[in-house]
């Protein structure tokens, strides 16, 4: 299974709640209770104001594509049989930016600014990856 060959996230103290959330089909991000800003990726303190007063909130899972690339030559062998595929940076409604794949769309149709929503792709018992697909109105 190609899926099991690519490097899986090593869950740590920062990311435990994030990956648990994904497993339950919730995209959990942090919010600073002092300065009010959302944070991605999760960490010990707010990178805006250094407060440790951070709350976990569920993202709407909606956002827009900030940028993307169609990969034709992967570096890791596990991705060779998936080309061409799209890796994108998505700006979530909460204002934070994260990387993911854009799926359920022809790779030639992907554009910057395109509205997308999260879908969850289980990989194994521990890891479910958040991916994104176009919002079809």
């Amino acid at each position: 299974m190609a899926n099991q060959q690519f490097p899986l996230p090593v869950i740590d103290g920062d990311s435990k709640i994030y990956w648990e959330g994904c497993k339950n089909n919730k995209l959990m991000i942090q919010k600073c209770e002092d300065c009010g800003q959302h944070i991605f990726y999760p960490r010990q303190l707010c990178p805006h104001c250094m407060s440790e007063n951070l709350a976990w909130v569920e993202s709407s899972g909606k956002g827009t594509i900030y940028s993307y690339t169609v990969v034709h030559r992967p570096r890791h062998p596990a991705f060779m049989d998936k080309v061409p595929y799209v890796v994108a940076l998505i700006t979530l409604e909460e204002g934070v930016r994260m990387m993911s794949n854009i799926i359920n769309i022809d790779v030639d149709q992907v554009r910057c600014g395109m509205p997308v929503e999260v879908v969850f792709e289980p990989i194994n018992d521990e890891i479910t990856l958040p991916k994104f697909q176009p919002i079809r109105s």
Partner: peptide, 30 residues
């Protein structure tokens, strides 16, 4: 040849961005 998915790269590596070229491709597209 960054293939580990630890620390801050755990949120990127699973998506198969070829490094370093993929990062520069994202910048070019933007």
């Amino acid at each position: 040849g960054n293939i580990q998915a630890e620390y801050m790269s755990q949120y990127e590596t699973p998506y198969g961005l070829p490094l370093p070229v993929g990062s520069y491709a994202l910048a070019a597209q933007r």
